[in-house]
Amino acid sequence: MQRSDTVAPTVSTEHFGQVGDTDVHRYVLVNPGGITVRVLDLGGVIQSIDAPDREGSPANVVLGFADLDGYVANNQPDAGRVFFGAVIGRYANRIGGASFTLDGEVHRVDANENGNCLHGGAGGFDTHVWQASTFTEDDAAGVRLSHVSPAGDQGFPGRVTAEVTYRLDTRNRLTISYRAETDAPTVLNLTDHTYWNLAGEGSGDIYDQMLTLRAGSFCAVDEALIPVGDPVPVGGTPFDFREPTPIGARIETADPQLHLGHGYDHNWVLDESGELAFAARAHDLKSGRMLTVSTTEPGLQFYSGNFLSDALIGTSGRPYRRGAGFALEAQHFPDSPNRQDFPSTVLRPGQIYRQETVYELTVH
């Protein structure tokens, strides 16, 4: 309940540019005395989040581009796409071999990464301008985005109507709610691909920031980052973040067979799913900023920015090198359409896809 001495968050709209003949807008969500979130209707991108440190000084704690041109250029298939802050769909993460069988029919989807389908293909949800409407409540403000993906989009069956809502409340919680329906059987797996750096965007790498994951196992992968075998217990591996651990503490000493490479890009099997539950916490000890993630999803893809490079110039005008940010992507498991033992991502007519993830920013 909102206290009588708090001021409700606000939302405003700004023109951000054009993609062809289509206007792109930025929606500014402000919690007075707290955080400010900027969202684009292009791809549902979270462009920036200004959050105060323990001294009250704000900094942008997510990676992004300063203008629309940066996002448009990076959305090209050969641009080394990084998906800064975007809604990912139709299928977040990877589908092995860019194909799956549903109800006895083989569906071939866009092979846009080493013969696999990554994040829904080259023309995924992140590349489209969504329809948008703003709203205010007693203790929150937000923007609601909607998009219709036609049957056959990137090879996926069914016409999917999707809705994503961003809601900022007086407790500095950004809640992202997803809803979708289909007119034919399909698979669906949506997530947010925000990169975080709690010390401030462009300030350096995130390897000293502390991470806790409420997960007792993870999905081992092959060299193409497709899950293999059963989930593996995290105990005794570089994947054990059950207690607060520096992100970079074990990367260089990892067994090459774990395909850790220059960092993490793996799915953790969360201890709880189905109901909104604590999943992860990150903490920058110097600034005091802390990020807590809760979700309804069964998995969390932790990515430590392994493929970022100084060719990417961020909102601050500084380059993003490897490890400049990390992503905590609440979702179903990679390659689930090809794994009957994984939680199902099948959506059928008459069913409603729902997901909720909450990002809460505090100072400690």
Score class of each variant (00 low, 15 high):
Q2R: 15
S4T: 12
S4D: 12
D5C: 04
S12G: 12
E14S: 08
G17W: 06
G20L: 10
D23A: 15
R26Y: 00
L29C: 04
L29G: 06
L29T: 01
V30I: 03
V30K: 06
V30H: 09
G43F: 00
V45S: 02
P52Q: 08
R54H: 11
G64S: 06
G64W: 08
G70E: 00
G70T: 01
V72Y: 00
D78H: 14
R90W: 04
N93K: 08
I95T: 03
T101L: 03
V109I: 15
N112M: 11
G115P: 05
C117L: 03
L118G: 02
G120A: 09
D126C: 13
W130P: 07
A132L: 11
T136L: 11
D139C: 04
A141R: 06
L145V: 11
H147Y: 15
V148I: 12
Q154P: 01
G155Y: 00
A162P: 04
A162R: 12
R167A: 10
T170H: 07
E181G: 00
T182I: 04
P185V: 01
P185Y: 05
L190Q: 15
H193Y: 13
T194S: 15
L198K: 08
G204E: 07
D205M: 06
M210G: 00
M210E: 05
L211S: 06
L225V: 03
G229H: 13
G229N: 13
G235D: 14
P238E: 05
E243I: 09
P244Y: 02
R250K: 06
I251W: 12
E252R: 14
T253S: 15
L258H: 10
H259A: 09
G263A: 11
V269G: 03
E272K: 09
L276T: 03
A279M: 08
A280Y: 03
L291A: 07
T295P: 09
E297Y: 08
G299E: 03
L300Y: 02
S309G: 14
I313W: 02
G317R: 13
P319T: 05
Y320E: 12
R322T: 13
G323H: 14
G323A: 12
N338E: 02
D341Q: 06
P343F: 05
S344I: 14
R348V: 10
G350E: 04
E356V: 12
E360M: 10
